[in-house]
């Protein structure tokens, strides 16, 4: 348990140090940063709770049988799993930070690391649906359409590379699911 908490704990200590330096440099800016952070926390937490509920549902063996995940998204499926991960990631709504508990649940259910990598990158690169509409309005349809096309290709490549890299190095994905 402590092993999993250590890296974020170190970041936490760093954040406290950064705030201390920030306060020394500019008190007003630091006050605004604290206000803004609390606002982000209050707005984001309910959506994150929903993501955790989804994680809980996905971890249930009745809802998502591990054999099915292994046969569809597992490493042994090769590029098929990575392709499905890519295609699942793009339309997945919600903020980008909500993908992590879902990705962890899918991994421990048997999904391959390439699939997990493609799923995360796919969900983050386009930001469906909110960012997508703003992008079309501000930057234009042509730019958005081409960016989406390149995104599908690079996310798939990233998934394949992720899968191959973890043949040689330990994955170290923590088992965070509570009993």
């Amino acid at each position: 348990m402590w092993e999993e908490l250590l890296p974020p704990l170190l970041i936490g200590i760093l954040v406290i140090v950064f705030y201390f330096i920030s306060y020394k440099k500019n008190k007003e800016k630091t006050r605004i940063a604290i206000k803004k952070s609390l606002r982000i926390f209050i707005i984001s937490l309910p959506i994150f709770v929903v993501a955790l509920m989804l994680m809980g549902l996905l971890m249930n063996d009745h809802v998502l049988p591990p054999e099915w995940i292994q046969n569809t998204l597992g490493s042994q499926t090769g590029v098929q799993g990575i392709f499905i991960g890519t295609m699942l990631g793009f339309p997945l709504p919600g903020p980008r930070y909500a993908i992590y508990p879902i990705a962890n649940a899918l991994y421990w259910k048997g999904a391959g690391l390439g699939t997990i990598g493609a799923l995360i990158c796919g969900q983050q690169i386009i930001d469906v649906p909110e960012g997508m509409f703003i992008e079309i309005k501000m930057i234009g349809t042509r730019f958005f359409a081409y960016r989406t096309l390149t995104a599908v290709i690079v996310v798939f490549i990233a998934g394949c590379i992720t899968e191959m890299v973890f043949w040689f190095i330990p994955h170290g994905i923590p088992y965070v699911i509570p009993p």
């Binding site: 970041i11 508990p101 994955h171 965070v176």
Partner: peptide, 18 residues
Amino acid sequence: MRLPLELYYLGVNFLIIR
């Protein structure tokens, strides 16, 4: 914002590779 969460859910190795 995603950095601490990715570290917690996916670990250091995955974060570095990504």
